[in-house]
Amino acid sequence: MIPLSVLDLAPVRAGGTVPQALRETLDLARRAEEAGYRRYWLAEHHLAPGVASSAPQVLIGAVAAATSRIRVGSGAVQTGHWTPLAVVEQFGTLDALFPGRIDLGLGRSGQRRAETRAPGTGTAAPRRGREVVDGLLIPEPFDQSRLAKSPVVKLFGALLQQPGAEPPDFAGVVDEIAALLDGSYRSPEGYEAHAIPGEHADVELWILGSSGGQSAQVAGERGLPFAANYHVAPSNVLEAVEAYRAAFKPSPVLDEPYVVVSADVVVAPTDEEARELAAPYPLWVHSIRSRLAAIPYPSPADAATHHWGPDDWDLVADRVDTQFTGSPATVAAGLETLRRVTGADELLITTITHDHADRVRSYELLARAWGS
């Protein structure tokens, strides 16, 4: 079986606190290591009452200190909010403290969104409408333009970037980070710069993406490993992995493509119990897509009292329908389908429940069923 890894947002539960959420992340990381998960990634989210992982670089250090073997990293650094030098120095410091265990995952959040596709690199046409591909549900694409029109987007930009800042192109950011890491950085005028810590740090560089656009293209052309987000943008996952493989060129890092695919999962001893634990998930996703900020994760009892209208379900249907929920056998079978259809070399599991013990048990049950 291919390896399983963890993607954690340090969720804050309804009625809980941020310190509690961070302590639970450290506990889950220790349990994930014991269960045999390969890596533990922390997301970067801002201004969300229900997510405590807003400073993953800090949290990565705490998780690495609380564990001993599991790889720890970012899933992903929002490169539009950081300079390449700041990223390399931060992760170089982490590598100096925890050598050989740090992953540096990069994402395009905060960047200019214009897509670039070189001719012939995007072989898969964007999918439209709901379909089942060899047993895997590919839902109708969610209309992201709804989010882009929100006035909150402008507020986020004002708070996360310096006044007048213009993020450079993502490909250029990746190249600068790679050059600072390997010590080959030269300015356009020919001047050298050396990141200390950071230069020659033993970190794994990753690209995360939600479509077959620039992220997949950059990862492939530079021969880097790629993580495709089925849990965030399930309608685009096949386009993303196919575009990455089409663009791939061997590099000193990889001889052939390496793909991680993410999945949203809730496991319990029975299908019925798992469905109950997952009942708050639609309400939580709705908060992200209607307010651009995750609410504290509701309890199943709170979710049961919420009234849903047709327009509400339109906001969440793609993600709710593609969540893997059930007994260990049920979820393992679903994840095997995801692996087979996408050709994933590794699966990245994200699980959120209201009760921490249920979340830990979900990961442990899955690991045993998967054979980690």
Rank of each mutant, 00 (worst) to 15 (best):
M1F: 05
L4I: 11
L4T: 04
P11M: 01
P11D: 00
V12G: 01
A14I: 10
G15D: 08
V18P: 15
Q20Y: 12
E24K: 07
T25K: 00
T25S: 07
A29L: 10
A32S: 12
E34S: 08
E34N: 05
E34T: 13
Y40H: 06
E44Y: 05
H45S: 10
S53C: 14
V58R: 00
I60Q: 10
R69T: 12
R71F: 01
G75I: 05
T79Y: 10
G80S: 11
G80L: 13
H81L: 12
T83L: 09
T83P: 12
P84F: 13
P84S: 08
G92V: 13
T93Q: 08
R101H: 07
R101M: 05
I102H: 00
L106F: 01
G107D: 07
R108I: 06
S109R: 06
R112E: 10
R113M: 08
A114W: 12
A114R: 13
A114H: 11
G122E: 03
G122P: 15
T123G: 09
T123Y: 11
T123A: 14
P126M: 07
R127F: 05
R128I: 02
G129R: 09
E131G: 14
V132Q: 03
P139M: 05
P141M: 11
L147K: 04
S150T: 01
V153M: 15
L159P: 10
L159G: 10
D169V: 11
D169F: 03
A171E: 15
V173F: 09
D175N: 07
D175I: 01
A179N: 09
G183H: 11
Y185F: 14
E189P: 00
E192S: 10
H194N: 06
A195C: 08
E199P: 00
H200L: 14
H200N: 15
H200T: 14
D202L: 09
V203N: 02
E204F: 00
L205R: 11
L208R: 08
G209E: 03
G209L: 00
G212W: 08
S215Y: 03
Q217P: 11
V218D: 06
R222W: 01
A227D: 06
A228E: 11
A228H: 10
N229Q: 13
A233F: 07
A233G: 08
P234H: 09
P234W: 01
V237D: 02
L238I: 08
A240T: 09
A243I: 02
F248N: 12
F248A: 13
V253I: 02
D255G: 15
D255K: 14
D255Q: 15
D255M: 10
V259K: 03
S262E: 08
E272D: 07
A274N: 04
E276T: 15
L277R: 09
P280H: 14
Y281N: 13
S290P: 05
R291A: 11
L292A: 12
S299F: 00
A301F: 07
A303L: 13
A304S: 14
T305C: 05
T305Y: 05
P310A: 07
D311C: 06
A317T: 11
V320G: 09
D321A: 03
Q323V: 00
Q323A: 03
Q323Y: 02
T325L: 08
T325E: 05
T325W: 12
T330P: 02
V331H: 06
A333Y: 05
A333F: 08
A344M: 04
L347E: 01
I349D: 00
T350F: 06
T351C: 12
H354I: 01
D355Y: 04
H356S: 07
S362A: 12
E364M: 04
L366M: 08
W370K: 04
S372E: 08
